[in-house]
Amino acid sequence: MRRTLPTLLLSLTFALSAVAAQAHTGLAEGGFVSGFTHPILGWDHVIAMVAVGLWGAFLGAPAIWALPIVFPMVMAFGGALGILGVPLPAVETGIALSGVVLGLLVAFAVRAPLWVAGLIVGIFAVFHGHAHGTELPSAANPLAYGIGFVLATGMLHLIGIGFGFLTSSRGGRIAVRTIGALIAAMGGAYLAGIA
């Protein structure tokens, strides 16, 4: 946790300079393809999902499996809130902030306790899920959409974990931390409204 303070300060700086990110376009159809493409067509979502996997890999066991298990379930809860029209403030800001925070956590190789990691990831998962749920096409086929949506999200986590295995070598750790910094920068760009 020794690098938590600078990470949080940087996150706060980005958060205070935030404007709403506009990365979601919504989709016209509501089947498997729509559900599958929804999480992977928005870069703000993609970077956060990958960052979850990367951070999990950095934290090692048990976080490497706990985070990808927790995230889809909590995200689906957020999605349910969105589908049911339950309002959640600052969703787009929360999504962009997730890229910043998770990216910085990876970049600074922050070693958080499992419950702290789960809490951080869980909170951001609600924002991501809510955005997806809100933008859902009204004619969606629930089962097909749900399967596509969850599979795409899970695959993004697995990609992150796959890259995270690079952390076993010194060069790999540098590469992963660089990816974390890039993710944080992209999240910052969304927060600032320039992406």
């Binding site: 889809p72 379930m73 999605g79 089962l143 749900g146």
Partner: peptide
């Protein structure tokens, strides 16, 4: 996650 989404739908 799929079940939760189906319930919400």
């Amino acid at each position: 996650a799929i079940l939760v989404l189906v319930i919400a739908f």
